[in-house]
Amino acid sequence: MRHTLAVLVENNPGVLARVAGLFSRRGFNIDSLAVGRTDNPTVSRMTIVVEGDARVLEQVNKQLHKLVDVIKISDITADEFVDRELVLIKVSVDPSLRGEVMQIADVFRARIVDLGKKTLTLECTGNNGKVDAFEESLQPYGIKELVRTGKIAMQRGSRYTGFTERSQKMNGNQED
């Protein structure tokens, strides 16, 4: 099963290598990993999508906790959450077909961010499934280049993965 983890880490050089290295040497499979700093410049947030059963996930969680630079981990899979991914796709489009492609873009609420003589570059955000579908519908036109950010996610409503003194205490006594 795929799990979505929200991980708060120290915004230190090398922290990405620590997390990525841990996953590779323990044989955990990362589906995607997105990272950027939070509203607190000393804290970064990683959204990690990882594949595994309950036992693997328990180890992922515990091993991540052992990294001194990891502040907090939430497995938000079971929660209601909003997840988004951004994709940029460059397709080769003859001017005569532009209209068609722009219609597809409309359906997905994608935007055209660059228009070349023979290419169109589109930007689309959405959850995994939507981005997949968007990619699929552009496939027939010939995708020249594609880049996805990987998923970022956030719990809905009043639940959150933030850094507060309280959350830190709970974090320290995870196993209790």
Partner: peptide
């Protein structure tokens, strides 16, 4: 003081 390092000493 490290916010990411707080070992648990007391058993539940």
């Amino acid at each position: 003081s490290m916010r990411g390092y707080r070992p648990t000493f007391r058993g539940h």
